[in-house]
Design a protein around this nucleic acid. Sequence first.
DNA 1: AACCGGTATCTTGTGTTGCATGGTACCTGG
DNA 2: CCAGGTACCATGCAACACAAGATACCGGTT
Lengths: 122, 122
Amino acid sequence: MVPGEASYDSADGPVASQLRRGVLEYCVLALLRDGPRYGVELLQELAQVQVMATSQGTIYPLLSRLRRAGLAETYLRESASGPSRRYYTLTDDGRRALEEFTALWPAFRTAVDHFLNPGDLP
Amino acid sequence: MVPGEASYDSADGPVASQLRRGVLEYCVLALLRDGPRYGVELLQELAQVQVMATSQGTIYPLLSRLRRAGLAETYLRESASGPSRRYYTLTDDGRRALEEFTALWPAFRTAVDHFLNPGDLP
DNA sequence: AACCGGTATCTTGTGTTGCATGGTACCTGG
DNA sequence: CCAGGTACCATGCAACACAAGATACCGGTT
């Protein structure tokens, strides 16, 4: 069985799924900026904003990528109730990647708005 | 040779490339909403907004998908200078898909802003 | 002790998608 | 007639979200 999926499942259409592509990674980096987090915890925090809700099958490969890419480091810590948790923290490279995205996002956001709403000249 | 690539090429990092995923399709639909367009013309209009600039290797498969999915229809029209152009127009399904995205986009936009900027309560 | 539900991590396989690369064809001007 | 611009399309690859499944630790109940 795969617990925790019933509550945190995405459950929205493929449009939102495609939107999450390439953005989810940086939302996770942003969450790590505020302190160490572990997998299921990240799932819960993402699910608080409906459109970002995702599943374990997405978050764990993503976290593995972050670690392989040197954007995050991990350590194990015992839990009061349940198995050990693997906490993720940002590296300097991770912080730089987040800043790169933060710098690019406004332009992208504006671009999509521009195409969606016809007629908006500076 | 592949002309037109030198000017309309993306030429930005992989971050922007990942951002375009799943959004490019709807930007194209939005452009088609304002009237029929053909491939190279779409490339030029997308390139006007730096971060959306893409290449023919992206736009033609995308347009084929739109047609197969029934979101767009096409017709051929001769050009005054050059080979015939394949113009794309929106179908009713295409208009619906665009509306679906338009309805979802603000929530998504806000969500990313929310994660990037810590501390923003309503 | 044995069992079970909850918590937690990880792997595998699939489908979609942006992109690089390359190929084909049409038209005009020198 | 042939070089260059315009335009379309196909192939192959890599990245990513997701579904589905496997494994394992814990505490409380039977």
